[in-house]
Design a protein around this nucleic acid. Sequence first.
DNA 1: CCAATGATTGTTTAA
DNA 2: TTAAACAATCATTGG
Length: 171
Amino acid sequence: MKVTKGKGVLKKERKEVLKPVEDRTLGKRKAALKAVKSSNKRTKNAIPAKKDPNKPKRPPSAFFVFLEEFRKVYKQEHPNIKAVSAVGKAGGEKWKSLTDSEKAPYEAKAAKRKSEYEKLMIAYNKKQESTDDDDDGEEEEEQESEKSKPELHDDYEEEEEEDEEDDEDED
DNA sequence: CCAATGATTGTTTAA
DNA sequence: TTAAACAATCATTGG
């Protein structure tokens, strides 16, 4: 598939660029998102999505990986700072300040995280194929016995403790 | 008291 | 391809 790779048409500023819905960035996604979360927790106000017993969450992007560390540091320098937005803004600004080389380790981590996600997704898919009841989406979460391990095929190793390999990339 | 919101960017997915 | 929603975090606020 030849996409317009040569042309960086994809600006991707955000969705609010042309299709926007009245409000800028937030609004709809939050509404739905929150509804899901709340439903997932206690309240049964679930409007969107269904409850997936073991659905793998999306792997954190390099930015999020960076943020995790950044937040910690930020708190140290600004213990009085409250609100997630403060760290978010500061982190975003800092992130832009980083160069590819500096972002590299974070991207690497994110990439690794993604690998696990793919594996997780496969396992999740297997379970999904079992669920073919279209009558009502009431499925019981089957208890997982970690004791008995249904070995997957030789393709994937389940649970591989990833060791931190120290590869220093010279600049 | 509980749940939602805010802000950042990147990734992931569906159409 | 494009648009959009979702990933974490946590104090504060609103119902």
